[in-house]
Amino acid sequence: MAGLNDDAQWIVLMGFLVSFSLFFLAMVLNQSVVVGQTTAESVSEFPKYDIREIRGVIIESYSMPDGANVQKDINVLSLARQNSVVNFSTYSVGEYTYIQIHYNNGVTAYNETWRSP
């Protein structure tokens, strides 16, 4: 580098360092806007209440005198209004009654075997 005056190279280099670090800090700050989006979307998409409610109504229907009508309604209504396929059946072993509950809305599947107390 004969003839070139390179006294300022350190200053320029430090300037670059500072500006790049600012740049990366800005990137981090930029990403903070989307914090929680994935969490919120998965919470909204997961049919927690749907499963909880349908489970409750199925179990309740088996202790009702006219439960068969209710159970037929559950199948038709969940398919028509909640886009979920619900299937359930019951069997007895000894003194216990078991209810097998299957729920599937295309994204979430839930299966349970409930035993009467």
């Binding site: 914090v35 989006q37 919120a40 979307e41 909204s44």
Partner: peptide, 15 residues
């Protein structure tokens, strides 16, 4: 990208 696009308020409203 606005805060509403993150669906956090939707989640709260649903709950």
């Amino acid at each position: 990208y606005t805060p509403g696009d993150t669906h956090i308020s939707d989640m709260q409203l649903e709950v």
